[in-house]
Design a protein around this nucleic acid. Structure first.
Length: 875
DNA sequence: AGTCTCACG
DNA sequence: ACGTACGTGAGACTG
């Protein structure tokens, strides 16, 4: 049998070290984690390298120790432990428990003494001992059987103190470390030593006389009158200091070495803790196998068909596809899982199976999925109409905490302590090596994912009910997923010819501008490279530098606009940028996304991504098609109805965010403005500038509009000053005057931040939550950001709630009125439909009415609308 | 992969 | 004093 090896850890010291060595980290709930993280990475490394058979982590107990009876000032004058660290100690303890390691503390003694005592016992039992600490005092315990590891910067860089190393480093024996400290003292423990004697002098003395006692026995022989004087004057103090620095190796501990056997961590507990603390990298890289994972080497069957009896009510299904682009991606196979059965069916067989197709389309047979919309769209490609989906893990998790946004079942289910799904990467590989694995591997992986859905369903649904978010789930997000799926599947027709023609025109213009720029610059360079452009503008042409970025000169549009009077080249660069953006992103980008077969673009809405509850749109993004500038707006001419003679119909909420603010803040003045149907920006201008309506100039209205935006974003004087290009003082004055006119808004903003700080999260109209851990941050920047977010999210998020509900009502209304009109796009406060011409008049009444009445606020909601043969014309 | 820039609400 | 407007996605460049 190989020799037994005991690892003794100084828990407090290591946690302290880690806390100061690592930048501040927090988990999604705002708990600081850097000390626990550093402790963990250090531990992982040590365990891998040392392969111990026995383990113990020692902690300090309480404030007073036996050393205080010798010297009451021991460890006096210490800075109070920062609260960011204190809150981590319980997690360090939990971590040690999860590793199945013994932890121990003893009244009146420090961790050092426990370690010293156990090290001595272990040596007597002929064990090898490794002591790990951040405190060099421990090195006095080094012997030929005991090595002391001291962490250096970054926690995983470790210095090994053997007697030989100590001799080399200090020229002393380990025992003499105590004497050294007796002489030089230790400011961190408030051990005085001999004033004026530092490390150098202490070592010099100890090389001549081996101990403090010997030094004093020969104190008259010590060279240097000053030094001798100092030594004599502080003899008692030196001896006491030595005593304080001596680690007790006979502490009355109640553990014995034999009880410290260690056989490895409780993997499930460890993973759960890592999950709680957001140690994602550790989770992904971990070589530990979850217990659950081993026991559920899922007894799955690969089948080519299933009977109606096997296709029961209440199954988790999971369709595996080659990649995330589910409009085009190849479907590989489908898993069907309950707590008692798991089947995997290759997708070709699904298409052949009447039983399975009937099951998928059976409303009465409830199914559970991860990403309803993906499944619905994918099945729809093969004319399978998925029905009866009762649970969507993705949406439920998103409602529970939008920070869980992810396309990955492994990470989402792990958030609910389900650690049984392997990562995408481990199945498919990454980068160029990505490949579909064998059917056996794939089948198990897909079944595991379905099982994750099945297993997390009940706890997650109860949690939503507990948090009063179940309605948001069943009445909004779940039905919305179905509607978005229909919109995506339908897609919008885009005329490639139109785009191509615009592209040619742009190419010509761009070439001309490019030539002009080169002439004006006197050199050829890549205009699209901010780096090269910076050199040309600020070095070659010597234009004044207004703003810098991390990496160099800023060449952003607002900077260039300020430089325009300085040099003719600027306007051409701005023009080039503008047209270049249209060309690359909108002409070339959109053309790539037009499907050959139906001449349509099918975007994907991300329904579980944004922190506020808004949707986002990808591949391509149809929520940022140009409109503000005429050149860009023309892109919209390419967006047309599917059918000849139909029209596009667009309806958008008017000032929805400010109306939401009026409702939530109950500010009298703001509410009155909307109740009286006033122009909101003019109204703000009247209030801020104290003028009558007919005295409001266009620049006053512009400033008021910026203030209104600022209010919605969580105002700051700096932000407003940047936006309006005015001084910070002037901006601050605007804000002050705004709040004087709208005091209810001020109160609301303050209350929002206050409530968020109490609860840790903010909520929207329909009870969507957003956690704001950074509100507790000691970092001014992070905290201010979180405070603005606390003001903005209820507004932006409630507006998102409202339009989501409107979409559901709109879908029902179209059905109810048996219209052919189809909802195609959503752009945050706007819905776009296509409809036969004869239905346009109906939509003009119906759509604004449904949008305005979808929720009842204390101010009216209003939607404006327009129709045309292209999206450009629907303005 | 990270940075910069710019399109939208 | 700190250094920002809120929420997104995509393309080009660069290391």
């Amino acid at each position: 049998m190989t020799q037994k090896k005991l690892l003794l850890l100084d828990g407090n010291s290591l946690a302290y070290r880690a806390f100061f060595a690592l930048p501040p980290l927090t988990n999604h709930q705002g708990i600081h984690t850097n000390a626990v993280y550093g402790f963990t990475t250090m531990l992982q490394k040590i365990l891998a390298e040392e392969q111990p058979t026995h383990m113990l982590v020692a902690f300090d107990a309480g404030k007073t120790t036996f050393r205080h009876s010798t010297y009451t000032e021991y460890k006096g004058g210490r800075q109070k432990t920062p609260p960011e660290l204190s809150e981590q100690f319980p997690y360090v303890r939990k971590l040690v428990s999860a590793y199945n390691m013994k932890q121990y503390e003893l009244e009146m003694y420090e961790a050092d003494d426990i370690i010293g005592t156990l090290a001595k016992q272990a040596e007597e039992a002929d064990m090898q001992v490794v002591i790990i600490s951040g405190d060099k005092d421990l090195t006095q315990l080094a012997t030929d059987k005991t090595t002391v590891y001291i962490t250096r910067k970054g926690m995983t860089d470790i210095e090994h103190y053997t007697p030989a190393h100590i001799l080399e480093k200090y020229g002393l024996t380990p025992e003499q470390i105590i004497d050294m400290k007796g002489l030089m003292g230790d400011s961190s423990d408030n051990i005085p030593g001999v004033p004026g004697v530092g490390e150098k002098t202490a070592i010099k003395l100890l090389k001549e006389y081996p101990t403090v006692e010997e030094i004093y026995a020969h104190v008259s022989e010590v060279k240097g009158a000053k030094l001798q004087e100092k030594l004599v004057a502080n003899e008692e103090q030196a001896k006491m200091s030595k005593q304080l620095a001596t680690i007790e190796v006979n502490a009355p501990i109640e553990v014995v070495v034999d009880e410290l056997g260690w056989e490895g961590p409780d993997v499930d507990a460890l993973f759960a803790l890592w999950q709680e603390l957001d140690f994602k990298t550790l989770l992904e890289k971990s070589e530990y196998e979850s217990e659950a994972q081993e026991t559920t080497v899922l007894e799955h069957q690969i089948v080519s068909n299933l009977t109606a009896e096997q296709l029961v009510d209440g199954m988790a299904i999971h369709l595996e596809m080659e990649n995330a682009h589910y409009h085009t991606s190849k479907a590989l196979g489908l898993a069907f899982v309950t707590d008692t059965a798991a089947y995997y069916m290759p997708y070709e067989d699904v298409l052949q199976s009447e039983e399975v197709k009937a099951y998928l389309q059976d409303e009465a047979k409830k199914k559970y999925v991860f990403d309803l919309k993906k499944h619905q769209v994918a099945f729809a490609r093969d004319q399978i109409e998925l029905k009866g989906v009762e649970f969507d893990l993705l949406l439920a998790a998103y409602i529970d905490d939008p920070a869980f946004a992810s396309e990955d079942i492994a990470s989402v289910s792990r958030a609910y302590n389900y650690t049984n799904v392997q990562t995408e990467e481990s199945i498919y590989g990454k980068g160029a090596k990505r490949a579909v694995p064998s059917e056996e591997v794939l089948a198990e992986h897909v079944c595991r994912q379905a099982l994750a859905v099945y297993t997390t369903r009940e706890p997650l649904l109860s949690k939503l009910k507990e948090n009063e978010q179940y309605d948001l789930y069943t009445d909004i997000e779940l039905p919305l997923a179905h509607i978005l799926g229909k919109m995506e599947t339908c897609g919008i027709r885009v005329n490639k010819e139109t785009l191509a023609d615009m592209g040619e025109e742009l190419t010509e213009k761009l070439q001309a501008i490019e030539a002009t720029i080169y002439t004006l610059a006197g050199t050829k360079f890549n205009i699209n490279s901010p780096k090269q452009l910076g050199v040309v503008l600020f070095e070659t042409l010597q234009l004044p530098v207004i703003k810098k970025t991390k990496t160099g000169y800023s060449t952003a549009a607002d900077v260039l606009e300020k430089l325009a009077p300085e040099h003719e080249i600027i306007e051409h660069i701005l023009q080039y940028r503008q047209l270049g953006k249209l060309q690359s992103t909108y002409i070339e980008g959109l053309m790539k996304e037009i499907h050959e077969d139906d001449h349509k673009i099918h975007t994907r809405y991300q329904q579980a991504l944004t922190a506020t509850g808004r949707l986002s749109s990808t591949d391509p993004n149809l929520q940022n098609i140009p409109i503000r500038l005429e050149e860009g707006r023309k892109i919209r001419k390419a967006f047309v109805p599917e059918t000849e003679g139909w029209q596009l119909f667009a309806a958008d909420y008017s000032q929805i965010e400010l109306r939401v603010l009026a409702h939530m803040s109950q500010d009298e003045n703001l509410m009155q403005a909307f109740l009286n149907g006033l122009d909101i920006h003019t109204n703000t201008a009247m209030n801020v500038f104290h003028v009558e309506e007919d005295e409001v100039t266009s620049s006053m209205r512009r400033a008021a509009k910026a203030v209104n935006f600022g209010i919605v974003y969580g105002i700051s004087d700096y932000g407003l000053s940047q936006n309006l290009d005015i001084s910070r003082k002037e901006a601050a004055e605007f804000i002050e005057r705004y709040f004087a006119s709208f005091p209810g808004v001020k109160t609301y903003m303050d209350d929002m931040v206050k409530m968020a700080k109490e609860k840790g999260y903010v909520t929207t109209l329909l009870n969507r939550r957003r956690y704001l851990p950074d509100l507790k941050s000691s970092n001014f920047n992070l905290r201010s950001f979180a405070e603005r977010t606390a003001m903005n999210t209820p507004i932006q998020g409630s507006a998102a709630d409202i339009i989501k509900k409107a979409m559901i009502d709109m879908d029902a209304a179209l059905k109810e009125h048996q219209l052919q009109a189809k909802m195609l796009l959503q752009v945050h406060d706007e819905l776009i439909f296509e409809a036969p011409e004869e239905e346009i008049a109906i939509l003009e009444k119906l759509v604004p009415e449904v949008m305005a009445n979808t929720v009842k606020l204390d101010v009216p909601l209003r939607a404006d609308y327009s129709a045309g043969y292209t999206w450009y014309d629907a303005k």
